[in-house]
Amino acid sequence: MHLYQILRRPLITEKHTILQTQGKYAFEVVAEASKPQIKQAVEKAFKVEVAAVNVMIVSGKRRSRGRRQLPAHPWKKAIVTLKPGDKIEFFEGV
């Protein structure tokens, strides 16, 4: 798997915005990605130094599709802690 395919999208929510003040940034990543891969990917994409990576599987919620309730796909979320002082500009305003 190529490095560029690891990170799927940044997660920008109220909760993650609060975490940003502690230098923690959240991403949705591909399910097969490992912590070292994520670390590499973030370092390369944003030119920052990563201190730690935590991952979790987010189980899919039930989604109604038409009349039926179908389970959505589970996905992997990564919380990346940067070296103190580093920032990812992308998450901030334009």
């Binding site: 929510t13 109220e14 993650h16 915005t17 305003g93 334009v94």
Partner: peptide, 20 residues
């Protein structure tokens, strides 16, 4: 704004969402 309750988004996010 998706991901935020009404009135809870920081200014930077709002600016990006509705445009400066």
């Amino acid at each position: 704004i998706p991901g935020f309750r009404k009135g809870k988004a920081p200014r930077a996010i709002l600016e990006r969402h509705i445009g400066k």
